[in-house]
Design a protein around this nucleic acid. Sequence first.
DNA 1: TGCCCTCTGTGCGGTACCTAACAGAGCAAT
DNA 2: ATTGCTCTGTTAGGTACCGCACAGAGGGCA
Lengths: 270, 270
Amino acid sequence: MNTLPRQPTDSRQNQLLAALPVAEWGRWRTQLESVDLARGEVLCESGSTPAYVYFPTTAIVSLLYLTQEGSSSEIAVVGNDGVVGISLFMGGNATPNLAVVQHAGHSYRLRAQEARNVVARSGPVLGVLLRYMQAMIAQVAQTAMCNRYHSIDQQICRRLLLGLDRLTTDELPMTQQLLANLLGVRREGVTAAALRLQHDGVIRYTRGHIEVLDRPRLEQRTCECYAVAKKEYDRLLPMRVPSGGHERKRPAVVHHAAHRLMETASCAMQ
Amino acid sequence: MNTLPRQPTDSRQNQLLAALPVAEWGRWRTQLESVDLARGEVLCESGSTPAYVYFPTTAIVSLLYLTQEGSSSEIAVVGNDGVVGISLFMGGNATPNLAVVQHAGHSYRLRAQEARNVVARSGPVLGVLLRYMQAMIAQVAQTAMCNRYHSIDQQICRRLLLGLDRLTTDELPMTQQLLANLLGVRREGVTAAALRLQHDGVIRYTRGHIEVLDRPRLEQRTCECYAVAKKEYDRLLPMRVPSGGHERKRPAVVHHAAHRLMETASCAMQ
DNA sequence: TGCCCTCTGTGCGGTACCTAACAGAGCAAT
DNA sequence: ATTGCTCTGTTAGGTACCGCACAGAGGGCA
């Protein structure tokens, strides 16, 4: 490697952007904005048309579905391996899901209208996006399976691995309550499972931070869902960028009033 | 209406084909084969590249995901409103799911290679397919939600409605065991729920056939998942074809040895 | 230092679903 | 009619997760 386009600010890029044919890159780069995303920021309200398409680099975004009563469940995780707002590319504009920044970080973004234009006039781009959609469907479907058949313990391991894959550290900044909200289970269930993992030396838990001590054992303990989804992802989008170290200034915290997923136990998205 | 292309044999067409721009239709129609699908036929093995893309008219197809141990769960239902084998259009070829004919009937199909060609050279086709994919993702995601939060009773109602929408009759040919396999729950749970529905006059159950007597109440009893997914579908693919009556000769039964989803309780896909 | 608030740990009762085993009811072929 | 099989109905006991209520622990801040 590599014929990959270089980004101005980031050594660790978005893999989807990196996978674009070089010829296309010229068109895109002038349109892309560089932004910092704060934790809890809502990128896409459920049911409304997003203003931007996001290509995260260090940020991590959760795609959530809500029930009528307001319970939520995370159906997909998007990091530097994907894009938030595929519905714009698909022509449907809105989606029924909610996109919330799960881990603050950097991202590129494209105005909705520009996104539509860029895709409309560029053939080879669609190949990448289509394969990404397929991988996304696989991840969502696997989530459905996991919900049906697997234990909380297994699901937690799966979710931790999803997080690890999109970070450069072994420490995930999440409270048990948040993890519970993402999986759509009770916080107490997460506590119990976390204790078992900690007791066995797989993780270490400290007030809002989970440090993964033994990733291989995490993989042993989880169900096949993690591997299946990941394998599908790797198959469809094999191009990888070496993930160099990364430090950026943290953005000013922008609290989006509408949604308090990240907040305290009592009011967290119940 | 309508500028919709007319199919030679069927008054009730595939809605996705019907949604194609007329200009495109000329290219497609010469490539499409008319086939009868037998119940239980496997259209697409998990992990392998399907030989055809299917556009069902009266047939209904289940997309299933499997666990390592062989448990299954239906993650999407495709009837005359969709297409089986989108992975070919997406460029990924294989998918991790299994496509099984759930209700015998008629379908059109396109050879894999021709499907790829047709899409590659035709711009406007992608719009339709992309929106369909978005609707598909929504259905899958809603399934994940339903698995997480809703009772067997609600899920059964949802599944019956999904079937009804894709048939011209009020009678669904399915055993309780089959329904249980599709939902990924125990047969006894289905029995109990079916008894409640029958007691209340919503359905009538007779050895492998469910007759829906009161659809409105079925809709009352189900969770929001049905409506959410359907609404998304209607939003993205609004074009509908009046579903005229339909009778075709039933195809010779082709039993696919590999998969006995439709078979007896004891060996059914457990 | 002490206060406050968030986060984590625990106990108890309830329930929805599961595993397992079996009994009766329809249907078909001999 | 008898036999055989599939499909439906029923029972009993186990378990994983839920709802609720509360106790302790850690960290920030005055």
